[in-house]
């Protein structure tokens, strides 16, 4: 058992544990934190596969951006646990079926490996000067440039649509005109009046 193997089993065990934590935690904030933890662990697994670009991007995008916004929302929501649990028995059969299918799929992959297909064999160690980042960039920006650009455009459309959908315009709003605020000068707000000095009232 090499160190890499020990690390793999350690981090996968923690990953599975924290994934179970995500679905069993009663407090939604705790669930989100378990999810963050499992992202870190799966990043380590990718690191063990020498896919350091993907590993770091996983942390950067999911931990650094997506989950922060997630936590934001979850922390401010007033989640009613009783109401949430009401549907449990109703949805449990469907959930169990989906879980069984997923387990069967994963199991079949593992089983196929047992049968001796070499396509799931150990990853060969890469040469020291191999750069994961460079290789990914090479593929994305040459061979797969059109699908990549297409995905980018679709994402952009989704962003614009999300903004349009959530923009509410109703009567009586008093939005700030920032340009006017920035352009304001002292003479617009303060009026200096020249007047004669007055004597003491006596």
């Amino acid at each position: 058992m090499t160190i890499v193997n020990i690390l793999f089993y350690l981090f996968s065990a923690v990953l599975i544990g924290s994934a179970i934590g995500v679905i069993t935690a009663r407090n939604p904030v705790h669930a989100a934190l378990w999810l963050v933890f499992s992202f870190f662990n799966s990043a380590v697994l990718w690191m063990l596969l020498e896919a350091e670009f993907l590993a770091i991007v996983l942390v950067l995008v999911y931990v650094g951006a997506v989950m922060v916004l997630f936590l934001f929302v979850v922390m401010m929501l007033d989640v009613n646990l009783v109401q949430m649990r009401q549907g449990f028995t109703k949805y449990a059969p469907i959930g169990l079926v989906v879980a069984a299918i997923v387990i069967a799929e994963i199991g079949s992959v593992v089983w196929v490996k047992k049968l001796g297909y070499d396509s799931f064999g150990d990853v060969a160690p890469l040469p020291a000067e191999y750069s994961n980042t460079k290789a990914l960039g090479q593929l994305l920006y040459t061979d797969y440039i059109y699908p990549f650009e297409l995905a980018a455009v679709i994402l952009l459309v989704a962003i614009v649509a999300a903004i349009i959908l959530t923009m509410r315009k109703r009567a009586g709003l008093k939005p700030q005109d920032i340009a006017a605020q920035v352009a304001v000068r002292a003479k617009d707000r303060v009026r200096i009046v020249k007047m004669e000095a007055e004597g003491k009232e006596s």
Partner: peptide, 24 residues
Amino acid sequence: VDAGLLYVLALTSAGVYGIILAGW
């Protein structure tokens, strides 16, 4: 490491958790 700049970005973005969790 090769992806040093990405590592910097990833870690600086993880620093926000301390603040959010402290507040919550």
